[in-house]
Design a protein around this nucleic acid. Structure first.
Length: 579
RNA sequence: GCCUCCGUAGCUUAGCGGUAUAGCGUCGCUCUCGUAAAGCGAAGGUCGGGGGUUCAAUUCCCCUCGGAGGCUCCA
């Protein structure tokens, strides 16, 4: 009976096996590092020519040979001189060993078969334990993730304890591919982009626009209910705004070049904050008025490198569901709690049951990357932590993840396939109020500095809808579905009844469509299913006579003899409850 | 931006030195049909764009624009 190893150990041993195969088949390759990642492992190699998919096959075959040979893994410690001799042709490994020495750690080695690698371990006992290994893809990656370093060739792979688990994983990848929002977005006519217009600029088609409108209406209602005031602001503004805010210094690479209007430079806005500040500043505010919450679906434009633009989730123009809260320092904690509650409520409505909360703080080693004094940062962090603790929410700390003007709570949603997506973010800012000299009058009759909270609960309409497509696999719940009901007729004799029903549905604000074509029912059903229309109504002679309908849902189940009034009542209820 | 791969009709796609396949869709005709694809016919492509090599380029080379997967970054 083989000893049980953790899947991490297994995968790391698989990485060693890969490195061994590479060194055998491509002796010129220099070893980089070979750590585990989510769902697998990789190993980096320096090599003049990149690996091809055929190379991967050869490497897999070679790995299989070593698995058959059942080579034992053993840990070895060498003196520094010995170690350096072994690694004399491996510059990256030597660099790593120097780092270990600086940190006062003693390097250890692992050997299996003819292959020795610098490694902390642990490993499986023998290559024979690696029963299900697969190389998945090749990519390039910078040594130590730094753009200024040499680019290495990375081979990704994965390993599982059993072949069955590997199969299951590959199936899941396939499932993810079916849900891909770039694919479904096209099939369901949700959005498009056009080279003639530019990369990362989303065109919302009628279907996507309905989904977006429903989300926006829901969003506005929930915000107004919670004391937010809705505003609209310009898309461009004097460059001076961004110099004052600090974006010009800290954020310039994400902004588009200035345009001259008369003699003055203007920028397309990458953020809405300065505009909300100016609305606030049009008059003197008493402490009695605070908190003031301005909300806007604000469309911003940010430069994204060409290599990262992707579908709806990484674009160059997008609409943030933005809001800025101006409050007293005493109110801060409650405001954060309010935003947390709103965020979690919204996520729940969209069927996200799981999420990960991260408290993003400064990188303590790089304080110059951030605006402002320690005291402000410490207060902001404390308020965020207190709010999380009050709500008894578990969170992890993300060092160096903070924005340049303040720390934040970032909530990552987990979709139906277990993938994480950036969702709500709540950022506390003591800096912009300072920069723009924002004040309120306190009980003491003196001017005080309010705190600003920047927050989004959906992120951006583009990314949110993109993620929703994948989350629902294109099967939107009734309240969001672009077409809620599609009426199919069996023969021309039923057209009149179908048109009557169609009219009744429209009168009830139900998004209905009519399919009167003289196609066969199987074909009409198939098409409606592929369009993922939640309620498919079929009307034949029987229904016309009995004044009922047959209702088919996306799971393929059919209910015959449903009274029309009952059907309408039922779907109105389902829409209202956002099921 | 960097690395690898990709770009053929609205969509999916065959071909890869001698100007091009097929299915779906579209249009026309026939069919009036009971829950995931009825039949026949037609139209539709300067093979992403530009340049080069060649007697000849969709095919080979270079540039460029888009896309995918990574790196880095991020709402």
């Amino acid at each position: 009976m083989a000893e049980k190893h953790s899947i991490e150990t297994l995968r790391h041993s698989a990485a060693h096996l890969l490195a061994q195969a590479v060194k055998e088949i491509f002796p010129d390759a220099k070893l980089g590092i070979g750590p585990n990642v989510e769902n697998g492992f990789y190993y980096d190699f320096e090599r003049d020519t990149p690996f091809t998919p055929e190379d991967l096959k050869k490497l897999e075959d070679r790995m299989r040979r070593h698995i058959k040979a059942a080579e034992k893994f053993e840990k070895i410690e060498y003196s520094e001189a010995e170690a350096k001799k072994i690694l004399k042709d491996e510059p990256y490994k030597l660099e790593l060993m120097d780092d270990l020495k600086k940190e006062g750690e003693k390097p250890t080695f692992y050997k299996h078969g003819n292959f020795i690698d610098l490694c902390r371990g642990p490993h499986v006992n023998s290559t024979a334990d690696l029963k299900a290994v697969k190389l998945t893809k090749v990519a390039a990656a910078y040594w130590r993730g730094d753009q200024n370093n040499k680019q290495l060739q990375r081979i990704y792979g994965t390993a599982f304890l059993t072949k069955e688990e590997l199969e299951l994983y590959l199936k899941r990848l396939e499932e993810a591919e079916k849900r891909d929002h770039t694919k479904l977005g096209k099939e369901l006519e949700i959005y498009s982009t056009h080279p003639e217009v530019g990369a990362g600029l989303i065109h919302w088609h009628p279907n996507g626009s309905i989904i977006r409108m429903e989300i926006e209406n829901f969003w506005k209602t929930e915000h107004i209910r919670r004391g937010y005031k809705y505003v609209y602001t310009p898309h461009i503004g004097n460059i001076g705004l961004w110099k004052t805010s600090g974006h010009w210094d800290f954020y310039r690479e994400s902004m588009y070049s200035p345009m001259k209007i008369d003699t003055v430079d203007y920028l397309v806005k990458p953020m809405n904050c300065p505009f909300h500040i100016f609305i606030y500043k049009t008059k003197l505010h008493s402490y009695r008025e605070l908190p003031i919450r301005y909300a806007e679906l604000g469309t911003v434009y940010r430069y994204e490198k060409s290599g990262v633009v992707h579908g709806m989730v990484r674009v160059r123009g997008f609409t943030q569901d933005d809001a800025h809260i101006f409050c007293t320092p005493e109110q801060l904690k409650d405001e954060i709690i309010g935003v947390l509650e709103l965020s979690l409520f919204m996520l729940q409505t969209f069927g996200y049951k799981e999420y990960v909360i991260e408290l993003s703080v400064r990188d303590p080693k790089n304080k110059e990357k951030y605006l402002g004094e320690d005291s402000g940062w410490n207060k902001a962090e404390a308020a965020l932590k207190e709010a999380l603790n009050t709500k008894k929410l578990k969170y992890r700390i993300g060092e160096g993840e903070a924005k340049f003007y303040g720390p934040s709570i970032d909530i990552k949603t987990i979709d139906a396939l277990g993938r994480e997506w950036q969702g709500p973010t709540i950022q506390v800012d003591f800096n912009l109020p300072e920069k723009f000299d924002v004040t309120y009058e306190g009980q003491d009759g003196k001017k005080h500095r309010p705190v600003m909270v920047h927050r989004t609960v959906l992120g951006s309409m583009e990314r949110f809808v993109g993620c929703l497509i994948e989350h629902y696999a294109g099967k939107f719940p009734l309240w969001l579905a672009p077409t809620q009901v599609k009426i199919l007729t069996i023969t021309d004799r039923c057209n009149k009844a179908a048109e009557e029903l169609y009219g009744t549905l429209l009168d009830n604000n139900i998004r209905a469509e009519l399919d009167l074509r003289t196609e066969t029912i199987p074909k009409k059903v198939r098409e409606a299913q592929l369009e993922k229309v939640p309620k498919i109504i079929i009307i034949g002679d029987k229904e016309v006579e009995a004044k009922t309908v047959a209702v088919r849902t996306l799971d393929g189940k059919v209910k015959f003899g449903v009274k029309i009034s009952e059907f309408i009542e039922e779907i109105l209820k389902e829409i209202k409850e956002k099921q």
